[in-house]
């Protein structure tokens, strides 16, 4: 039986090795992304566009539905409480602020992790176990430049776009409840929604979505490239990628919220 101290030691070393490899992959990806701006072949641009369509455009429907119902639920839950205080109109800023600051960026990131991050890991994992990654290297083509940079850049652009859409759709959900259930005037509802929003709410939400895009793409690609052991390995890698991304998104959300709203920024 393995000594528990040895097991803890091994796990700790493994954790730090993986963390340093992920950071190193991130640095290489950023370097190739910048270098690639001056040295972009036609195939690279096409690849980024394809990834943007897959990660962004094709995620629109699911982001729309989840954000809409999130907005509806927040409006109903807060109205239930605010009604006792006679402050039902404050449902509007409640929905808009919670969507723009928190729920828009986080929910969109979680949706994209499940839909896009898992697909990236499965695709790269399959390429790894079927020797396609090795084939790229043998052809003197960097897998980072060829596979990771297009996915990284596509998510970096599309996740903030999806987040903005999610924010608006969430507010629309709140508006539906406000107008049709609570009997509020739509103009007053919209004015209240935007009057309480500050630019800080908007930019902090967008900074979060950029951080989440980085997490999703780098974790998905890293786990994909480390895949071993055939179909079972691809399945395990995909699960691992989604679980790690979920945890990191929530942890970084907490850190960034603390930084933006509980420090002197």
């Amino acid at each position: 039986m393995t000594n528990p101290i040895v097991a803890i030691g091994k796990t700790t070393i493994n954790f730090f090795q993986n963390a340093s490899s992920v950071l190193s992959l991130l640095a290489t990806t950023i370097w190739w992304s910048v270098f690639g701006l001056f040295n972009r072949k036609a195939s690279g641009s096409q690849s980024i566009l394809n990834q943007m369509v897959f990660a962004g455009v094709q995620s629109l429907l699911i982001v729309f539905f989840i954000s809409l119902f999130t907005g509806v639920v927040i409006a109903m839950q807060s109205a239930y409480q605010l009604r006792t205080l006679g402050a039902v109109i404050y449902v509007a800023p409640m929905v808009s602020i919670s969507m723009v600051r928190e729920l828009g960026p986080v929910f969109t990131a979680l949706i994209v992790t499940g839909r896009v991050g898992s697909a990236i890991t499965a695709e790269l994992g399959t390429m790894k176990v079927s020797e396609q990654i090795e084939a790229l290297e043998t052809m003197a083509l960097s897998p980072v430049r060829f596979l990771i940079v297009p996915r990284f850049l596509a998510l970096l652009v599309m996740l903030p776009c999806l987040t903005v859409i999610s924010d608006f759709v969430g507010m629309l959900g709140g508006l539906i409840v406000g107008v049709f259930n609570l009997g509020l005037d739509p103009y007053r509802y919209v004015t209240f929604s935007f009057n309480f929003l500050t630019w800080k709410d908007v930019w902090t939400g967008l900074v979060k979505s950029v951080a989440f895009a980085t997490i999703i793409s780098i974790i998905a690609c890293y786990v994909g490239l480390k895949t071993q052991g055939g179909a079972e390995g691809v399945g395990k890698a995909t699960t691992l990628s989604v679980v790690v991304s979920f945890i990191l998104i929530v942890v970084f959300d907490c850190i960034l919220t603390g930084l933006f709203y509980f420090s002197n920024m």
Binding site: M127, S130, E131, E134, A135, T138
Partner: peptide, 11 residues
Amino acid sequence: GMSFQSSALFD
């Protein structure tokens, strides 16, 4: 150049 056992063509 390298020819792989599984062909390793890009799907």
